[in-house]
Nucleic acid binder design. Structure first.
Lengths: 196, 196, 196, 196
DNA sequence: AATGAATGAGGGTTCATTCAT
DNA sequence: AATGAATGAACCCTCATTCAT
């Protein structure tokens, strides 16, 4: 929230992201994070109140980054449900492939948030799910999505996109653009998109 | 692996499953596990070599339980790819809803396995994925599944089924049978099943 | 002391000697000893009351073995102080080279004996030192040993002989007989043996 | 090696020396050491990486202290082998009597050093033995030491000097100066020192 | 703005030992 | 004569955190 030194913040957050992603929150060591960031242990405590505070900061920042990406894509896309769904899935696939560390932390470590920090995060996360829900329901109302299971389709789409962060390899055979095509197609298949 | 006393084993494994599921492997305390199992700390060490050993035992047991369920379902189902896919998805949905703790541990905590134990687990897990792959590819060859993205469809189906363990509530509005129907339908939609 | 089963006793004592010698008393594990002896942990406790009891048994046995060897050598030697000194030094060198494990345990681990067991051991050990003392003093009275420092000479001789167990290598270049010659010569030099 | 605070270091090292000397390395408790030093357990770990690290620090420091004393004595002594031998034996006797704890730790606990730390220590210790060897061999070449057993004489002298730390009592009947006289005489006797 | 020193709680693990059988 | 099961105490060590400076 508060800004102390941009550099300090950044080094710590980046180090923490890696440490959290590699070891998981509770196995992560705040000493390691400080060391990775090239700071003293006490310096870290100057910037952040503690481990939870650091996790919360990262989780909120990374979730926000994801939603910013989604919002931009949605804004640039056409208004019809199919275009909107394509846009949000594409943005998600891009984010999961281009920011696997951020993605995995948000997906995996949010459960380590203590109640105090959890509230704000969950709320933020729900607003996210709502975007998918709204689009799908709009598509059904418009008669272009024919799935009888709106909620499950929504969960399926989110789950399959999230999983990408766990297996995708930038140096692998499949390019991001190709993957975007596949997953937008899959998403439309899942909601049973049929025009006319 | 090794069997010492059925009772001792069972109490410990059940307690450990809960602890691992609630807190995650590395936040889990072996002292807590012993207490939950109603044993002394050292008694636990009489049965298991350590925390890793306990995790590995649980992971292997629960993964095996899942695959046993799948195999039974596959054996009882028709030979055609659609029936086979329906069967394995149904078995998976059932397992995820009826054994959410086992499911979540297998899905979430396998990454805490150290190399020594990992090998056997990964191999076992791969044989699992192969079942899905084989069925989908058979369906494509047979001309009944029309998805152009066999691998991604496979991943999507697995991801959506796995996610169930995270949100499903036995006391919620949706019954298991209903959920099975929905997810088998969704799976067939994903692979673009069309006969004739 | 009491005999339960000759075999059991022997296997345990031999295993314990090795373990004590390799790791030192307090780092030695009674579980390891049982395992090395090919017995169950409880079997060991059937034969010995505990770790201390086992140590005491070994220490007493090995010290006794050493003094038996000395007594035999002294009995077989001439009555004059020089012959007696030669005999006891030769016996000591032989024991240290031929039974390095027993030697090292007696020398090194006696300090781990608890008071209860210590008394008997110390007494036994003192009777040992007395043999050296008596011989040296006899030699001085007889006018064949001319050292002005009887006690220090005694300590020096014992120390140099004991040290052998720490460095002597059976497969090394120096044979036992040769070593016996050297150390008996050295001992007589130390007490300044001059006849006539 | 690393220096953090002179005070912290000193209190810990002194406490550890006593604990190691009294109980032996593996029976020594790091909690006891911290308590004796008047520090918290974790404070100790701020200064030393662990039990081994502490042992290594002490062993190296105390061995160095001994060799510094030897070097000073050798530098102040005459160049001829007899004077040099007298000097190094005198320095050794003084060190063993005046620093019995340091002496006993170096002599007894070096075997508890793990390979990682052992190397440096052994090397340092070998340079030590070499001093004795060089002097004795120089004496033999110069025709003033007549022992036919240079190596065994060296070992005997070192062994008898080392043993002092185990039995010498500062409040006993024998003063240090007197002991120095006796042991230098004994050493020259052992190498069969005869001039002219 | 930044740190070195110190702490207390808890971590996993191993230990010698006992006891019912 | 022999054992499997269980225990409580202690082990070394690492942790997130604080505080005086």
């Amino acid at each position: 929230m508060s800004v102390k030194t941009a550099e300090g913040h950044k080094a710590i957050v980046e180090a923490a992201r890696l440490e959290f992603a590699e070891r998981g929150y509770s196995a992560a060591s705040i000493r390691n994070i400080a060391q990775r960031a090239g700071l003293s242990l006490s310096a870290l405590y100057y910037y952040y109140k503690g481990k939870q505070d650091l996790l919360a900061a990262i989780l909120n920042a990374d979730l926000a980054a994801y939603w910013t990406a989604c919002d931009e894509a949605l804004g640039a896309a056409g208004d019809d449900p199919a275009s909107q769904l394509r846009a949000i899935v594409a943005a998600t696939v891009r984010f999961r492939t281009e920011h696997p560390v951020k993605s995995n932390i948000v997906i995996t470590e949010s459960r380590s948030l203590e109640p105090k920090y959890l509230e704000h995060y969950v709320e933020s996360n729900n607003r996210a799910s709502d975007r998918f829900r709204d689009i799908i329901e709009a598509g059904i109302r418009a008669g272009v999505f024919h799935t009888p299971y709106a909620e499950d389709a929504r969960r399926a789409i989110i789950a399959m996109c999230n999983a990408i962060a766990q297996w995708y390899d930038v140096d692998g055979p499949v390019g991001v653009d190709e993957l975007v095509t596949r997953y937008t197609d899959l998403a439309l298949t899942i909601v049973e998109h049929r025009e006319g």
